[in-house]
Design a protein around this nucleic acid. Sequence first.
DNA 1: CGTGAAACTCACACCGGCGTCAACTGCAAC
DNA 2: GTTGCAGTTGACGCCGGTGTGAGTTTCACG
Lengths: 119, 119
Amino acid sequence: MRIGELAEASGVSTRSLRYYEEHGLIRAARTPAGWRDFDDSTVERVVLIQHLFAAGLCSTSINELLPCLESPPEERTGVMEQLLAEQLARLESKRRDINREIEILQALRTETAVPTQPT
Amino acid sequence: MRIGELAEASGVSTRSLRYYEEHGLIRAARTPAGWRDFDDSTVERVVLIQHLFAAGLCSTSINELLPCLESPPEERTGVMEQLLAEQLARLESKRRDINREIEILQALRTETAVPTQPT
DNA sequence: CGTGAAACTCACACCGGCGTCAACTGCAAC
DNA sequence: GTTGCAGTTGACGCCGGTGTGAGTTTCACG
């Protein structure tokens, strides 16, 4: 499938898809004329990539993670499991941060006033 | 107090402090020679600002929020309360997003494999 | 008076995912 | 042939908080 179709099907801009390919997140065969030719399964993959971006992962992390996810769970190596665990830990750590900041803001909301700035 | 002292006391670089002043988050008097002269209470304020940055607020939002936090809760206007509520809602929405993404990653971890890319 | 630390202003760079423009080519339809 | 859409590469811009460097001034101390 061509890049326009893939963009349509996955809801991602052609610019982003080229970016993904450039950074090795997806692969495309080329027609004799040089046009990208994507496999149908790439739609699913792009949607997944979007989720990972939404979770705050950078393209480098996604690039490490994708090969892990390609193996079924029972065949994954310890390294793969470790990468997955790391990213989960990162997310959970971020969740803790947010929880803390929510508490701080809630406390500020009900508690005392902050010192005013001198003019 | 001078900018170096403030930087030391608050753990924030002088560059950032100048940025904060430039954007109205903190105020500084000036000595005759043009050096910034910060009030002692600014330390506390800078620490708070760091928390708000950590919570993902941008300087513009912080700028709106700070005057609200300067009034004690009982004297706050409806507008102030609304701003606070908005930022809290933003944070809570972000927390929900993260929770969702954690679930997705956990599911990916245990469930099926992603289709491999054709070479 | 000289020296060095610390302050000042101005300005450029970075990160990273993507928008967007430019200049060019491929290909189907009329 | 030509029109026009879809594709190609390459490059620049953006955002926003900071790092960093250059070139200058202030001020405490010997």
